[in-house]
Design a protein around this nucleic acid. Sequence first.
RNA 1: GGGUGUGUCGCAUAGUGGCAAUUGCACUGGGCUGUAAACUCAGCGGCCUUCCGGCCUCCGCAGGUUCGAGUCCUGCCGCACCCA
Length: 399
Amino acid sequence: MNFKIVSKENNSLARAGVISTSHGDILTPAFVTVGTKATVKALSMEQVREAGSQVVLANTYHLYLEPGDDLVRDAGGLGKFMNWNGPTMTDSGGFQVFSLGAAFGKKISKVAKNESGIWIESGEIPKDERTPTLVEITEEGVKFKSYLDGSEHFFTPERSMEIQSDLGADIIFAFDECTSPDASYEYQKEALDRTHRWASRSLSHHKSLARKWDQALFGIVQGGRYQDLRKESARVLAGMNFDGYGIGGSFEKEDMGNAVRWVNEILPENKPRHLLGIGEPIDLILGIENGIDTFDCVVPTRLGRNGTIYTKYGRMIITNAEFRKDFSPIQADCECYTCLHYSRAYVAHLFRANEMLAGTLASIHNLHFLTKIVADAREAILDDRFFEYKKEVLDNYLK
RNA sequence: GGGUGUGUCGCAUAGUGGCAAUUGCACUGGGCUGUAAACUCAGCGGCCUUCCGGCCUCCGCAGGUUCGAGUCCUGCCGCACCCA
């Protein structure tokens, strides 16, 4: 993998570049489509490509459980297996430490909206009153109970590297612990130090593995919503020789742009930075402004399947009564396949009728919408009018 | 004509005399950020209330029994099936 910065915006950390992999180039900033189980839900790879996607990210934990990383390896690697001939990434399983752990069975998001101004920290809840989870974290690694059949599996940084080596993505991530926004400072600190040790173990094990293919390894910055921990994490990881960096963990919605800037002011400028699992239109703009090169997020496909559709004027819930007889396209000037051929009324009908095509058409539009926001931001950086572009997007979206 | 059933929120269903009444679908609104997710939460007779809640109306229609009836009784109406 190789990264080249093509253009920098003068008054921010924004930059446009190219990540070259053995499966092709990624023009950055770029939005990475999530295909957890080696499939982008409800879409064919042709549709993913046509919607504007350059890269697909799959998940180590899911593919290890099903169908097994050795099978994917024998199939010729992730891209070949899933019929995606472009660049690929795999997440390490670190997010599942959160989603199947602290977040399991709870209504908790890693992007916290601190509306009340009051945080209830999980550390304040006695251990025996906490919801049971599927993970158990130790210094050595994480014991997972399979969400499929309850069987136990032990993940370590080394194991994650081996599995990701089998999967064969172009860019892979260190095994980390994604912490919950309601974790206490003390816990965040403890988890952060452990994640740093895991980063170091990931790196050295990755180097020691017989290389089946050319894989870049990204370290993951953590630190939750604390400025000092975020900066400390960036410094520690910058000191390790990763090929690039992921920024993970939980954020305070209102503070996301700042959190990204704290980190990116420290990370080496000449290496790509990936903001893990972030996603919404405004977040993308703020991320780019503060030096992010790539993003991945489930939000276009998940929201799409669940009936929420992005437009440049904000989200719309397509099943709302007002769209029943609305024969206009989802967004008048959108050039995605869905908008070119179908009306709001039709998509709404498909959702009400529980037809599979509903999720497909909505996902195509949402994916196109987000990839276009990011691609247009790239153009704006190249043309030296990023802030103009930012204002236009925000003014419309928040209108 | 005779008999046996049966009528509960748009549809379909629960419902031992203390019930504003179960559940599913539909409907209405919300949530979803490195996918445990084509998922999930809430509302769904009316009015009032700051929470607790309060008041009114209500189970085909009309009477009756009872402290109290969706539940029991009588009649009527509708529907289903069986016998003629």
